[in-house]
Computed example of a mutant assay.
Amino acid sequence: MDAGARILARALTGAVGQPVVVENRGGAGGVIGVDAVAKAPPDGYVLSFASTGAVAVNQSLIPNTPYDVRRDLTPIVIVSAIPMLIVVQPSLPVRDLAGFIALARQRPLTYGTSGPGGAPHLSGELLKQRAGFDMTHVPYRGAAPCVAGFLGEEVDACILDPLVLLPHVREGKARAVAVTSPARSAAMPEVPIVAEAGVAGVEVENWYALLAPAGTPSDRIDQLWEISRATLNRPEIARLFTDQGGRMVISGPADSAAFIRAEVEKWAEVVRLGGLRAD
């Protein structure tokens, strides 16, 4: 996310003629940073660049989230979306996702992610719910420890951003069985989507949105949207995002708001059915 924020900040700096500074405020799954913007003056000068977890999932996953995205923030643009890649140990006697699910119904299997509550974890939960099987989640403290754990054969499968997993797939150290995008990814066209394994409704992309505090004047929102659209449509800028394994979205304020509302409801149901809760 930090890399995407800096790409956008550099591009916007040239467009608006003044510095656009990235200030990282990590913690609590993105709650601290998003809350700071939700409570900032609505003048269009303090914005949030946040992902699916902080914007849509935390509403239901984290008790007493101090903001309501639908009430306290105004979307400007959804910039890009990156699917999750599901890989399994090459030593497992399976060649595809259907085979992995069948094996999980026969014996206990585990999957690792970068931590609880993020897009990788929720992808696994949604897959289990839609396919009707179980596997044990093993949360690591970040993507790098998760990859190390997978390569050390601590877990049977791993769900992460394709950027960190694809090198290991190409080296034969991991077997890619599915990607969670609605259609096959241009970055890995050889990898089938989850629906091709006969499991519908598992479309998960870690999307990134630019948001302003609620109450920001509509003309300022429109101005920021137009600048963002023109900037993100530049091929050299779009390529910086797609090189991360995702796709450009570039949806405007109204479409972004409707999409985020739907995502909040979608993940609330997944959290409820999975009995999930962040401490």
Rank of each mutant, 00 (worst) to 15 (best):
R105P: 00
A102N: 10
A104H: 02
V31Y: 00
E125T: 15
L151S: 12
S80A: 11
R95C: 02
L122V: 13
G172K: 04
L92M: 13
F150V: 10
L240D: 11
C158I: 12
I76G: 00
V155R: 02
A200E: 15
P116N: 09
L276F: 11
T65F: 04
M135E: 00
A54N: 04
E226H: 03
D279I: 06
A214T: 02
G215V: 12
G4A: 10
L92K: 07
V177S: 01
N24A: 14
A262G: 09
M248Y: 10
A268R: 07
E226L: 06
V169L: 08
A54K: 10
G149D: 07
P145V: 04
V194H: 02
I227V: 11
A38K: 00
D43V: 01
P90Q: 07
G142M: 11
V155P: 01
V147R: 14
A144Q: 12
G112P: 07
I32F: 05
M135Q: 05
R261I: 10
P235G: 09
S228T: 07
F241T: 11
A36C: 03
Y111P: 01
A148Y: 00
L109E: 03
E125A: 13
V77S: 00
L165S: 09
G215K: 08
G53N: 14
G172Q: 04
P167S: 15
F259S: 10
T136R: 14
A131E: 09
A174R: 07
D279R: 04
L109Q: 02
D96G: 07
I221P: 01
P41T: 06
D35R: 03
L166D: 03
V264H: 05
G118W: 14
I227E: 05
S80W: 06
P192W: 13
G33Q: 08
V177H: 01
G246R: 10
R277G: 11
G4C: 07
T136Y: 06
T216V: 09
A11Y: 02
V94A: 02
E171C: 04
L85I: 14
I193S: 12
L92P: 06
M84C: 05
D72T: 04
I227D: 01
A15S: 06
M248L: 11
V177K: 02
P189R: 12
F133M: 03
P120I: 12
V270S: 12
R107F: 14
P63I: 10
R184I: 09
L92F: 05
E265K: 13
Y208G: 15
E269V: 05
L127D: 02
P75C: 04
A209N: 15
I78G: 03
P253S: 15
L232F: 06
G14L: 14
I7Q: 08
I78C: 02
P253M: 14
E226A: 08
D35F: 00
